[in-house]
Amino acid sequence: MTTTDDFRFHAHELIVDLDAATTEMMKLISAHQLSGPEWERVTQWQHDAYERWMTYLNARSYPESGDTNAPH
């Protein structure tokens, strides 16, 4: 796998987790369940997933512009 492929693979994993957590949060909002242990669990999951995503994006060192595998 190239560096770009590695980035995309891991980014996809993180995005899927963040999307799942956000979806669960929205389900609870739609059900008017904005408190209690399930709300706490899901909001923590969503927060952690967002933090993992942002940490990954901010920690990336992107390939030099001469790298043919760099994202366009």
Score class of each variant (00 low, 15 high):
A70S: 15
A49V: 05
E24N: 08
H10D: 06
Y50V: 00
K27E: 13
H32Q: 15
F7W: 13
T22A: 05
R52H: 11
E24W: 01
I15H: 10
P63M: 04
Y56K: 01
A20R: 15
H32F: 10
E64G: 10
L57W: 07
R8M: 13
D17K: 12
S61W: 03
L28H: 02
S61R: 07
D67T: 03
K27W: 04
T4A: 15
V16L: 10
D19S: 12
M25L: 15
S61G: 02
D67I: 04
A11T: 03
K27C: 11
H72I: 07
T4N: 11
H47N: 12
T2G: 10
N58Y: 09
E24S: 11
K27S: 09
T4F: 06
T23N: 07
L18I: 00
T2V: 08
E40N: 10
V16M: 08
M1L: 08
F9G: 01
A11D: 08
L34V: 15
P63G: 04
M25S: 03
T23M: 08
L28K: 00
T22L: 10
P37Q: 05
H72W: 09
Y50L: 04
R8I: 02
P71V: 06
T22W: 05
G36P: 03
E24D: 11
H47K: 13
H10T: 11
H72Q: 12
A59T: 13
L18H: 09
E38I: 13
H10N: 12
D6P: 00
E64S: 13
H72G: 14
E13M: 10
E38G: 01
A31Y: 08
P37C: 02
E64R: 09
T55C: 01
Q46K: 14
L28Q: 01
P71E: 13
E40Y: 00
I29M: 10
D6N: 12
Q33H: 06
D6Q: 12
P63A: 07
R52L: 07
D19V: 06
H12W: 12
R60Q: 14
T22P: 00
D48T: 14
H32M: 12
V16R: 11
D67V: 03
A70M: 09
L28M: 07
R52A: 12
E38L: 14
T55W: 01
A21P: 04
V42D: 00
N69V: 02
S35D: 14
W45V: 05
R41W: 01
F9R: 15
W39C: 10
F9W: 12
D17G: 04
S65C: 06
M25P: 00
W53A: 09
L57H: 07
H32I: 02
A21L: 04
P63W: 05
A70R: 15
A11Q: 09
V42K: 00
E51K: 09
D5R: 05
M54N: 09
T55L: 01
G66W: 06
D5G: 02
Y56G: 04
E40D: 14
A21G: 07
H72E: 11
M1Q: 07
A59N: 14
D48K: 10
